[in-house]
Structure formats: structure tokens, C-alpha cells
Amino acid sequence: MLDTRYRVEIPGGINLDAQVVGPIPRFFAFAIDLAFRGVIVFVLSMASIPFGAFGLGGGFFLIFLFAIEWLYPVLFEVFWRGQTPGKKALGISVINDDLTPVTLGTSLVRNLLRTVDFLPLFYLAGLITMLSNRRFQRLGDLAAGTLVISVGESNRPAPQRDLVPLAPSTPLLRTEQSSIIDFLQRSQQLSEPRQRELASILEGITHEKDDNGVLQLQRLGAWFLGLR
């Protein structure tokens, strides 16, 4: 089964899921960061020119250039919950592969090794490595043991409509109950013919056809959901 899910067992005996993030969102995150850095560099260079291009201003400009080149991602990742501005915009975040936050050490390794990911031009090596493992880790990620996951907003269950719950006539398994609940909660997104089509599969249970079948299923769902 293909899935972007990455699962780790954490203390507490629980499996925690995270969604790994592939090259396309990361490309945009990087592009935003690049633009952001470009603006900073531009502003700084403008600001430093009056102080002498080969003197004071130039000196500080070079130091900032260095910091922006090497430390920009590190500082943001360590002190901003694994997110640079670009990553924040895309709702993605860097994390250790045991799902603990990145530390200074892992972030440093990950970002210093950008140099190799960059080879031979513009992150081609990084792209190829990303596509050669299931977790979309580039070389720096592999060495540091980090990965990029999505930390976007989670879906909220839809609000419930008023339904009279209906007790099932035959016992159903847990998985089956939950699929009926799913049906109830997502029926607003489904077209009515599709609802009818789905309900027709379960005619053996609802003993009703068409719209009545749909309604019956939704009432079953309300029962399983515990609406009383």
C-alpha cells in the first residue's frame, strides 16, 4: 500500500503518524526562502554601501552574507520549531526521524551538507536522493537523520445534522461501523447519485432502496456515532 505516512512508535507505546513531504512543496519552500534571503541581502547591501564597500560596510555585509548562507536555515530550524519562513508558508517542518524536534547538531549537519546536495548544479544530487528513498530525504537528511513532515491544519469532523439514530438489526464489526460513520460525515461532500450508489451496496443491511437507503445508513451512522 503506497502512502506518504511515516510511522514511529513513541514512548507511551503509541504509533504516531506523520506525513513526509516530497520535492514539490519543498521546492516552493526553498524558493520562498531564497526570495526572502535575496531581499535581506539586497537591503543589507544597500545599507552597507554608504559605510564603504571595501571597509566597514563591506565587512559587516560579508559577515551577514556568511550567516545567511550557512546559518539562516540552522537558526530558523532550531529556534522556530523546525521551520524556516518558506517552510512555515508551506506548512512543513524539519524533524528528527524519531519525531523529536531538530537539535542544533542535527540541523547543523543537515544544512552544512547542502553543499553536496547542491552538486552538480542546483540541488540535482539532493533531488535524486530524495526520489530514491521513500521518506524523501536528501543527503543531508540521511546523514543527520532528519526528515521533512507536514504540520498543516488537521481536518475537523463535520458538524452533525439532526438525525434520528437507528439501531442496527444485525451486529456489525468495528471497522464496518466506522465506515458507516465515515459515510455519514462525508455525505455532504458526495453527490446524491453517488450517495445512492454507495447505499445500494448495503441494501442487504438497510433493506431500503435509493434515498431511503441513504437516510437509513445515515441514521445507522448516527447510532454508531453515539448521537442519542
Binding site: L172, E176, D182, Q189, L190, I201, I205
Partner: peptide
């Protein structure tokens, strides 16, 4: 999203079991 395939999968297996 629009057609709820996942629901169809489990509905079908439920109907089969029945």
C-alpha cells in the same frame, strides 16, 4: 473526495461478509 472510494471499499467487504 468526491466519490468516497474508501467507503465503497469497506461497504463492499461488509456486503460480501453479510
Amino acid at each position: 473526495e468526491l466519490e468516497a472510494w474508501d467507503i465503497e471499499i469497506s461497504f463492499r467487504s461488509l456486503a460480501n461478509r453479510k
